[in-house]
Design a protein around this nucleic acid. Structure first.
Lengths: 185, 185
DNA sequence: CAGAAGTTTCAGAAATTACTGAAAGTTTAT
DNA sequence: ATAAACTTTCAGTAATTTCTGAAACTTCTG
């Protein structure tokens, strides 16, 4: 499993970016390597290619599986386990969004719901609660929205994206076509 | 600047979540405090309320300003500098998206563009380049899309979000209404 | 201009996070 | 049941990130 210069650059970059995407350097590198390699690749090969310990590789693969970005692939006749991407690029991107939503939004939603249950103790708290409520609603919208996008599936999502600034025009159109439904507040 | 229990819980939580949102614990806490406090608040008050050093506060505020989430507010007659949120919740959320896009997507786009310029050295590289190209196109779509959403502004964005699963139906509708324009590929 | 009131910087300390490698665990084959 | 081939775990170490606080800087005020 010798990495070509192109693959090396890409893998290193995904390592650097990894931490910004929610995982650490080696996890990012492992992911890139698995995605860019057409053949299934073994844990040992990963360790060798990236010069990291076997233990680290094992942990990294575990994490990537928990993100559902990578899956095992059993090669008949082989004892070792091999790894391949858990789907095409679109699927992987969706998984990243979904997992991040779980980690970045859901816990906050849950806390906000709790904090909004208590009656405000004073003026100051009432104001803060109002702000927290705004945040809650925003996060709820984002969540609903992102789930909606996932349900659309790649093709329609693509249509929508390609539509670009047409979306705004379409919305106006819609208000005329479907009056009364889903009204704006 | 005594924090009420409610505000304390919220501030602490935003601190914990901070790192997932792209900044560190104290930066998250400072942001929450500024947002939840109706009055402008001074750097010293922030240090006291959060029990962090004056230096750390200074750095945190600098970072929040670089994210354009917080701005200075000069109180006439006061020597000190006060801080307030740089806009309403919607604005802040947009800023976070935008900044994260800059940090999480743009650098990768740039690298991918470069890597795609070189001719592939062999079969393996050609395959990898194809994958990289898919990733590039996806990121490009996401970028275009998120910019589009920002241009829509809060109200329309809200309409769109409230529309929920209606979006799918609307897309079909659109194809009938505007045939030939923005065709699907 | 001296000094008071405030802010920023940055070297080093503290806290956190990631990595290694050896030991323990698992599975398959004989 | 033993051993070979492989994987996982985890205690300790290494690397990175964050925080402190003292010194340097900047503005205002008298």
């Amino acid at each position: 499993m010798k990495m070509t210069p192109l693959i090396t650059s890409a893998v290193m970059h995904f390592g650097e970016m990894g931490s910004r995407w929610g995982f650490n350097r080696t996890v990012g590198q492992i992911l890139a390597l698995i995605v860019l390699n057409e053949e299934p690749i073994s844990a040992q090969e990963i360790s060798d290619a990236l010069n990291i310990s076997r233990g680290n590789t094992s942990m990294g693969l575990k994490e990537l599986q928990s993100w559902r970005l990578v899956k095992q692939h059993l090669v008949p006749g082989e004892r070792k386990e091999f790894f391949i991407p858990a789907g095409d690029i679109w699927t992987l991107a969706n998984r990243v969004f979904e997992e991040r939503r779980k980690r970045e939004i859901d816990p906050t939603m849950s806390l906000l719901r709790d904090l909004l249950l208590d009656a405000p103790a004073n003026e100051k708290e009432a104001n803060a609660q109002h702000k927290l409520n705004e945040i809650h609603d925003l996060l709820e919208s984002i969540t609903a929205w992102s789930q909606e996008l996932q349900n659309l599936g790649p093709e329609k999502l693509n249509t929508l994206m390609k539509l670009g600034s047409g979306v705004g025009r379409m919305l106006e159109l819609k208000d005329k076509l479907l009056p009364g439904k889903n009204s704006v507040n």
